Computed example of a mutant assay.
Amino acid sequence: MDAIDLLINRHSCNQLIAPAPSGEALDNIIHAGLRAPDHGGLSPWRFIIIEGEGLKTLSRYFQDAAFILGKTEKDVLKAANAPFRAPQIITIIARIEDHPKIPESEQLMSAGCVVMAMQMAAQAQGFNGIWRTGWFAYDSHIKQKLELEEKDEIVGFLYLGTPEVVCKKIRQLNTDSFVTRMDN
Protein backbone atom coordinates (compact mmCIF):
# COMPACT_ATOMS: atom_id res chain seq x y z
CA MET A 1 0.00 0.00 0.00
CA ASP A 2 1.43 3.35 -0.97
CA ALA A 3 1.89 5.94 1.82
CA ILE A 4 -0.50 8.57 0.42
CA ASP A 5 -3.22 5.98 -0.15
CA LEU A 6 -2.73 4.74 3.41
CA LEU A 7 -2.93 8.26 4.88
CA ILE A 8 -5.97 9.48 2.96
CA ASN A 9 -7.88 6.24 3.47
CA ARG A 10 -7.03 5.77 7.15
CA HIS A 11 -9.87 4.26 9.12
CA SER A 12 -10.47 2.66 12.46
CA CYS A 13 -11.91 -0.78 12.95
CA ASN A 14 -13.47 -1.82 16.23
CA GLN A 15 -14.19 -5.48 15.48
CA LEU A 16 -10.81 -7.10 15.95
CA ILE A 17 -9.72 -10.71 16.39
CA ALA A 18 -6.44 -12.61 16.62
CA PRO A 19 -3.86 -12.53 15.38
CA ALA A 20 -2.52 -9.31 16.81
CA PRO A 21 0.75 -7.83 15.63
CA SER A 22 3.81 -9.63 16.95
CA GLY A 23 7.47 -10.05 16.12
CA GLU A 24 8.69 -7.81 13.32
CA ALA A 25 5.21 -6.36 12.72
CA LEU A 26 4.94 -5.22 16.35
CA ASP A 27 8.53 -3.90 16.25
CA ASN A 28 7.59 -1.87 13.16
CA ILE A 29 4.60 -0.42 14.99
CA ILE A 30 6.73 0.60 17.98
CA HIS A 31 9.45 2.06 15.75
CA ALA A 32 6.83 4.05 13.79
CA GLY A 33 5.61 5.52 17.07
CA LEU A 34 9.14 6.46 18.07
CA ARG A 35 9.41 8.58 14.90
CA ALA A 36 6.68 10.98 16.02
CA PRO A 37 7.54 14.70 16.02
CA ASP A 38 9.37 15.38 19.25
CA HIS A 39 10.38 18.97 20.04
CA GLY A 40 13.64 18.95 21.96
CA GLY A 41 14.13 15.21 21.66
CA LEU A 42 12.36 14.60 24.96
CA SER A 43 10.80 11.29 23.85
CA PRO A 44 7.88 12.00 26.18
CA TRP A 45 6.15 8.64 25.64
CA ARG A 46 6.01 5.20 27.10
CA PHE A 47 4.09 2.10 26.03
CA ILE A 48 2.46 -0.76 27.87
CA ILE A 49 1.66 -3.71 25.60
CA ILE A 50 -1.26 -5.69 26.99
CA GLU A 51 -2.31 -9.09 25.67
CA GLY A 52 -3.13 -12.58 26.89
CA GLU A 53 -3.47 -12.65 30.68
CA GLY A 54 -2.72 -8.92 30.71
CA LEU A 55 -6.16 -8.28 29.20
CA LYS A 56 -7.73 -10.01 32.22
CA THR A 57 -5.66 -7.84 34.55
CA LEU A 58 -6.68 -4.67 32.71
CA SER A 59 -10.29 -5.86 32.86
CA ARG A 60 -10.04 -6.05 36.66
CA TYR A 61 -8.53 -2.54 36.79
CA PHE A 62 -11.35 -1.15 34.65
CA GLN A 63 -14.01 -3.02 36.63
CA ASP A 64 -12.61 -1.90 40.00
CA ALA A 65 -12.36 1.71 38.81
CA ALA A 66 -15.97 1.67 37.61
CA PHE A 67 -17.08 0.23 40.96
CA ILE A 68 -15.09 2.86 42.92
CA LEU A 69 -16.70 5.61 40.81
CA GLY A 70 -20.14 4.28 41.71
CA LYS A 71 -21.09 3.38 38.15
CA THR A 72 -24.18 1.28 37.50
CA GLU A 73 -23.93 -2.51 37.46
CA LYS A 74 -24.34 -2.39 33.67
CA ASP A 75 -21.46 0.12 33.34
CA VAL A 76 -19.24 -1.94 35.66
CA LEU A 77 -19.81 -4.97 33.42
CA LYS A 78 -19.17 -2.87 30.31
CA ALA A 79 -15.89 -1.66 31.82
CA ALA A 80 -14.86 -5.23 32.65
CA ASN A 81 -15.52 -6.32 29.06
CA ALA A 82 -13.80 -3.38 27.37
CA PRO A 83 -10.29 -4.90 27.14
CA PHE A 84 -11.60 -7.94 25.29
CA ARG A 85 -12.55 -5.93 22.20
CA ALA A 86 -9.17 -6.78 20.67
CA PRO A 87 -6.41 -9.32 21.21
CA GLN A 88 -3.86 -6.59 21.99
CA ILE A 89 -3.92 -3.12 23.52
CA ILE A 90 -1.01 -0.72 23.53
CA THR A 91 -1.43 1.93 26.17
CA ILE A 92 0.35 5.11 25.09
CA ILE A 93 1.46 7.32 27.95
CA ALA A 94 2.70 10.89 27.75
CA ARG A 95 5.52 11.14 30.25
CA ILE A 96 5.27 14.88 30.90
CA GLU A 97 8.41 16.75 31.92
CA ASP A 98 8.73 20.26 33.27
CA HIS A 99 10.76 21.97 30.58
CA PRO A 100 11.54 25.68 30.11
CA LYS A 101 11.07 25.57 26.31
CA ILE A 102 8.69 22.69 25.65
CA PRO A 103 5.22 23.10 27.14
CA GLU A 104 3.09 20.22 28.36
CA SER A 105 0.71 20.72 25.43
CA GLU A 106 3.50 19.98 22.92
CA GLN A 107 4.46 16.85 24.80
CA LEU A 108 0.83 15.67 24.75
CA MET A 109 0.53 16.42 21.03
CA SER A 110 3.70 14.45 20.39
CA ALA A 111 2.24 11.47 22.21
CA GLY A 112 -0.93 11.86 20.14
CA CYS A 113 1.19 11.67 17.00
CA VAL A 114 2.67 8.45 18.36
CA VAL A 115 -0.78 6.84 18.48
CA MET A 116 -1.56 7.88 14.90
CA ALA A 117 1.80 6.62 13.62
CA MET A 118 1.36 3.30 15.41
CA GLN A 119 -2.16 2.80 14.06
CA MET A 120 -0.99 3.64 10.54
CA ALA A 121 1.92 1.19 10.82
CA ALA A 122 -0.50 -1.52 11.96
CA GLN A 123 -2.83 -0.82 9.05
CA ALA A 124 0.05 -0.79 6.56
CA GLN A 125 0.88 -4.35 7.67
CA GLY A 126 -2.65 -5.72 7.31
CA PHE A 127 -3.80 -5.19 10.89
CA ASN A 128 -6.10 -2.49 12.14
CA GLY A 129 -7.21 -0.92 15.34
CA ILE A 130 -9.02 1.81 17.09
CA TRP A 131 -7.74 4.56 19.37
CA ARG A 132 -9.88 4.71 22.50
CA THR A 133 -9.80 6.88 25.58
CA GLY A 134 -13.04 7.26 27.51
CA TRP A 135 -13.05 7.82 31.22
CA PHE A 136 -10.52 4.97 31.61
CA ALA A 137 -7.74 7.22 30.30
CA TYR A 138 -8.33 9.85 32.98
CA ASP A 139 -9.05 7.67 35.99
CA SER A 140 -6.62 7.93 38.91
CA HIS A 141 -7.19 4.30 40.03
CA ILE A 142 -6.25 2.98 36.59
CA LYS A 143 -3.22 5.27 36.39
CA GLN A 144 -2.11 4.02 39.81
CA LYS A 145 -2.57 0.37 38.84
CA LEU A 146 -0.51 0.94 35.67
CA GLU A 147 2.18 2.44 37.93
CA LEU A 148 2.20 5.82 36.20
CA GLU A 149 3.92 8.87 37.59
CA GLU A 150 1.74 11.73 38.87
CA LYS A 151 2.26 13.91 35.76
CA ASP A 152 1.88 11.02 33.28
CA GLU A 153 -1.16 11.10 31.04
CA ILE A 154 -2.76 8.19 29.22
CA VAL A 155 -3.13 9.50 25.69
CA GLY A 156 -4.92 6.44 24.46
CA PHE A 157 -5.50 2.75 24.42
CA LEU A 158 -4.68 1.51 20.91
CA TYR A 159 -6.71 -1.65 20.39
CA LEU A 160 -5.02 -3.78 17.70
CA GLY A 161 -5.79 -6.97 15.86
CA THR A 162 -7.02 -8.38 12.58
CA PRO A 163 -10.28 -6.90 11.28
CA GLU A 164 -13.12 -9.37 11.79
CA VAL A 165 -15.27 -7.59 9.21
CA VAL A 166 -14.78 -5.40 6.18
CA CYS A 167 -14.54 -1.98 7.77
CA LYS A 168 -17.05 0.67 6.76
CA LYS A 169 -16.12 2.94 3.90
CA ILE A 170 -14.71 6.15 5.28
CA ARG A 171 -16.72 9.31 4.89
CA GLN A 172 -15.43 11.79 2.38
CA LEU A 173 -14.91 15.32 3.65
CA ASN A 174 -14.93 18.44 1.51
CA THR A 175 -11.63 20.24 1.99
CA ASP A 176 -13.34 23.62 1.42
CA SER A 177 -14.98 23.24 4.83
CA PHE A 178 -11.58 23.13 6.55
CA VAL A 179 -9.19 25.23 4.49
CA THR A 180 -8.72 28.98 4.37
CA ARG A 181 -6.13 30.36 1.99
CA MET A 182 -3.98 33.42 2.51
CA ASP A 183 -2.47 34.19 -0.89
CA ASN A 184 -1.74 37.89 -0.48
Rank of each mutant, 00 (worst) to 15 (best):
Ala122Arg: 00
Cys113Gln: 05
Ala80Phe: 09
Ala79His: 04
Glu97Asn: 12
Lys71Gln: 06
Gln119Gly: 15
Val76Met: 08
Leu77Val: 08
Pro87Ser: 01
Pro103Ala: 13
Glu106Tyr: 12
Gln88Phe: 00
Arg95Trp: 04
Ala79Asp: 02
Lys71Thr: 01
Glu97Val: 14
Ala80Gly: 09
Ser105Phe: 15
Pro87Arg: 01
Glu104Gly: 12
Leu77Arg: 13
His99Gly: 09
Asp98Gln: 13
Thr91Asp: 07
Thr72Leu: 06
Met118Phe: 00
Ala94Asp: 15
Cys113Met: 10
Pro87His: 01
Ala79Ile: 07
Met109Asn: 11
Met120Glu: 08
Lys101Ile: 09
Ala86Phe: 10
Ala124Glu: 03
Met116Phe: 03
Lys101Asp: 10
Ala82Asp: 08
Ala124Gly: 12
Ile89Cys: 04
Pro100Lys: 11
His99Val: 06
Ala82Gln: 14
Lys78Pro: 01
Gln107Asn: 09
Cys113His: 11
Val115Gly: 06
Arg85Tyr: 04
Leu77Cys: 07
Gln88Ala: 09
Ala111Trp: 13
Leu108Cys: 09
Phe84Asp: 02
Ile102Trp: 12
Ile93Ala: 01
Asn81Pro: 00
Arg95Cys: 11
Lys71Leu: 03
Ile93Gly: 03
Ala94Arg: 14
Lys78Asn: 09
Ser105Trp: 15
Glu73Met: 11
His99Tyr: 08
Gln125Tyr: 04
Lys71Ala: 02
Asp75Trp: 02
Gly70His: 04
Thr91Lys: 02
Lys74Thr: 05
Ser110Leu: 07
Asp75Arg: 06
